[in-house]
Design a protein around this nucleic acid. Sequence first.
DNA 1: AAGTGGTCTAGACCACTAC
DNA 2: TAGTGGTCTAGACCACTTA
Lengths: 243, 243
Amino acid sequence: MADLVYRTVMVDLKNRIQADEFKSQRLPDERSLSEEYGVSRSTIKRALNILANQGIIFKKRGSGSFINPLYQKNRTIFQYGGSNLGVTDSFISNGKTSQIKLLDFKVIPADEELQKDLFLNSGDFVYEIKRLRLFDNQPFMIEIGYIPIKLAPELSAEIVSSSIFNYMEEQAGKSVTKSFMSIMAEPSNAEDQELLCLTPTEPVGIMEGIFFLDDGTPFEVSNMRLHYKYLKFNTFVDLNENA
Amino acid sequence: MADLVYRTVMVDLKNRIQADEFKSQRLPDERSLSEEYGVSRSTIKRALNILANQGIIFKKRGSGSFINPLYQKNRTIFQYGGSNLGVTDSFISNGKTSQIKLLDFKVIPADEELQKDLFLNSGDFVYEIKRLRLFDNQPFMIEIGYIPIKLAPELSAEIVSSSIFNYMEEQAGKSVTKSFMSIMAEPSNAEDQELLCLTPTEPVGIMEGIFFLDDGTPFEVSNMRLHYKYLKFNTFVDLNENA
DNA sequence: AAGTGGTCTAGACCACTAC
DNA sequence: TAGTGGTCTAGACCACTTA
C-alpha cells in the first residue's frame, strides 16, 4: 500500500499543504510537479485528483490548482467522517489514543430490516455490539453495531473491545473499505446525556450506515450517536461525477 | 460536455446495467470493453471507476468487475450525497413546493475570511443574503449566503427571493456544480427556535460550505441552520480513494 | 498458466486563462 | 502567446484470482 507512487505523492502534497508550504494557496503546475517528483504527469494528476475529490484542493483549467481555503480553516483536531471509515483509524493519526468500553455483546436473530441490509436469510443470527468510544479519556460516541456471525464466527468480547475492522484486516484478511452513511441530528436522550456527559439542551449527531467488505459483501450495520462537538463531517460534492 | 468519451461509455454502461443486460452481475473485462467501444483501456477504466465510486459496481483484482447487488435492488440509499446541490432542487422532485422568505439583503465589504474563501481582494464587496426556507409552508432552514457582487452584478431582492442557482444557470449561463461542505450539529439559539419553531432542547443541523462554479471559481459561502428533522445527509464513502 | 484489474509511463492534442 | 489543466492513447509491467 505504501509504495504506490500516486499515493506517496498525494500524502506528501497533503503534508506540504498542511505545513503551509504553498503560500498564496497555489500549487506548482502539474508539469513542474512531475519533474520535481520524477514521475509522469499522469501520476501527478492522479494524486491531485484525489486531493480534489477530498475537497482539499480545486483546479481551474487555464489557471492552476489551488488550496481550498475552507480546508485550511477547518483543520480541527476532532473530526469524524470524510476521509475515514472506522473510528479507531480516525484518531490514531492525531497522536492521542482512542479507547473502547464494551457495554453489551450478545447474539440475536436478525430482524427483517437487518436481513435486508446485510443480505441475510430469516433465521440468521447477528452479533449485537454496544460500545462506548472515548478519545483522550473523553466519551464521544455510543455505537451499536450488528455483524452477521457467519462473516466473523470467532468474535469475542475481547476482540470487540478494540477495533473490529483492524481485527478483520489483520486476522481474517478482509478489509472494510466502503460504507453508505446517513448523517442526522437529534436531541439527546437520558442515556446519551449520561454516557456522553451532555446537558439536556445539547444534541447528539447520528451516523447510521452499512459497512462493506472489499468484495461488496455488507459486513456491519452501525448506529452511532456522537457528542455533537465531535460531529464534523466534511464532504466534497461534485455534480459532474467525474471521479 | 456530452462528447466526452469516458462519460459516454460510463452512461452507456450504466444504462446496460439498469437494463439488466449483464446477468450474473458480471461485466465484460476491461480489455474486451476497450475493443467493443473502440477506445483505450484507460478510458474504460475511467468510466468503470466512476461507476465504482458511485457504488454501482465493484471491482476485484484478478476476478473481474461486478454489479453491486444493492444497486439492482434500487435501494434509496443510493442517492449518495451528490444528487442535489442547491436547496430548491432538492425538494422540487418531491412534488411539494419550496418557498423562500427574504429576511435581509444588502451589500457589505468582504471581511478577511470572506476574502480568503471567495478569492477576493480587500475592498471587494459581497451580497449578504439572509433567507428563510420553507417546505410545504413549514420553515426548515435559515440560510445566510455571501456572493461576490462581481460574479453576479445584477442580483436583486426579487431574484434572491427564488433560486439563485437557477438564475445563474438560466440567465448568466454559469452553473454551480461543486461544493465543499461541513456538516455539524448544535443546540438551537433563540433565533433558531423562533424562526424554525423549535423547543430549547431541539437542535439545529449546521451546513457550512462554499459553492463553486463549473470552472472552479468560488461563488458563494453559505451558512445554513436546519431544523434537525430536515437534516439527513446520505453519502457513500470509499477508502480506496482511487480516482 | 491464463486471465483479471492496478499502476505507471511518455506523449499528443484540446480548452481555457492570463497577459 | 504562453501557460495551465483536461482528455485520450498505446503499451509495459505488476499483483492477484482461478483453475
